[in-house]
Amino acid sequence: MIRVLVAGSSAVVRSVLKEIILKTAKLEWVGEAASYGALKDGLSQQNPDIVISDKNLFDSERPSTLSDYSHTTQVPAIIYYTPDAKPYFTPQNIKFVEMPEFINFSTSKISEYAEYLEQLIMDVKCSVVFGNHPSALNSSLNEDGSVSQALQVVSKNYKGRKFKAVLVGVSTGGPGALLEFLKGIGKNFPLPIIITQHIDSFFDKNLITWLGSESTIPVHLAENNVRPLPGHVYFAPSDVHITFVAYPENTFNIILNHDAPVNFLRPSVDKMFESAARVLGADCIAVVLTGMGADGAKECLHLKQIGAYTITQDKASSVIYGMPKAAYEMGGSCEVLPLNQIPQRLWSLV
């Protein structure tokens, strides 16, 4: 359970947030504070894992209070702001979110927002303290990294295929899932692994550093016109699409692309898969892991149709079964697997 302290200048907002948190499965409401002084007391007395507050609570104290908070505590926070008070800085341990109209929330809206808030908190928490990511609760990996279940036999159409890359799309719950995924892959994997993860700009370098330190695979923030190396992992930078360009001798390079967002997303999994379909064709493996929404679903189907091998994570091992579900229900999945079996399948394919 993630312990949540609610602090806010509005009693109505605090009350609605408490009701929302009490409807979640992974969040625990530990108390509330109506002022910055009460918040500081709550931090020491309640020992929360995360704070939810509003920008006005900090601004009413003095203009620099929010900056002081971000520099004097390691407890991450979600800070709501009104449109007329949009923040212009992004400290590492704070996630700014526009304030919804909590006062108008119906019972059904509260339940709907409870799921969203739970995933938002999990993402913020894992972005600041990656090693404590709640997705570990859903993992079915053995402690030694082994897999107890046997995989089904792959169709003979994929036997002996000279795959060129593994492409991974992931969003909510990604950091914890990716760590388990990369630990399962291990050293000396014969293909490059290229990942599009939806993550804020001030977290992407932290994520890469953390994954590189916790796994045995070299992990990089992708650079423009780089030829990816086997056994290395390349992440799409924040707010930049990853695409590809073909080169002679059956190779390809990563191209960083600043085209418009696709369905409000940049980087976009669909954009990466679409480019892979043009450049790599059937000679790639596409994996869709945990995440909200449907990014990657349409182009995952396209890749499957042209002969690529596509894998979607199953519901039980997903932090949120959105992206993999959309790809599966659209018909884009060659195989549905729990997280712990995906690395084993990739090794069997290559």
Rank of each mutant, 00 (worst) to 15 (best):
L5N: 06
S9N: 12
V12Q: 02
V13R: 01
S15W: 01
I20M: 00
K23F: 00
E28F: 06
E28L: 10
L39Q: 15
D41Q: 14
L43H: 13
N47P: 01
V51W: 04
S53L: 12
K55S: 12
N56V: 14
L57C: 11
L57G: 09
S60H: 13
E61D: 13
R62M: 13
T65R: 15
D68T: 14
H71R: 14
H71G: 07
V75W: 01
A77E: 06
Y80T: 10
Y81D: 10
A85T: 12
T90W: 14
P91I: 04
Q92H: 12
Q92K: 14
N93R: 08
I94Y: 07
K95N: 09
K95F: 10
E98L: 09
E101K: 05
N104E: 09
N104I: 07
S108N: 04
K109I: 09
Y116T: 15
E118V: 08
Q119W: 02
M122C: 11
V124L: 10
K125L: 14
S127K: 12
V129H: 13
S135H: 07
D144V: 11
G145P: 08
K156V: 02
K159L: 05
K164C: 01
A165N: 11
L167W: 07
G169D: 04
S171W: 04
F181G: 05
I193S: 03
I194V: 05
I195G: 05
Q197A: 02
H198S: 03
D204A: 14
K205A: 10
N206T: 08
T209F: 03
W210N: 13
W210A: 00
L211G: 07
H220D: 03
L229D: 06
P230H: 04
G231I: 02
I242H: 09
T243S: 15
T243M: 08
I254R: 14
I254C: 13
N263I: 07
P267C: 10
V269P: 01
D270Y: 06
F273W: 07
S275I: 09
A277K: 06
V279G: 07
L280F: 10
G281V: 14
C284H: 10
C284D: 13
L289K: 11
D295Y: 13
G296Y: 12
A297T: 07
I306H: 00
I311A: 00
T312L: 00
G322P: 04
G322T: 09
P324Q: 04
A326P: 02
A326D: 01
E329Q: 04
L339Y: 01
W347V: 02
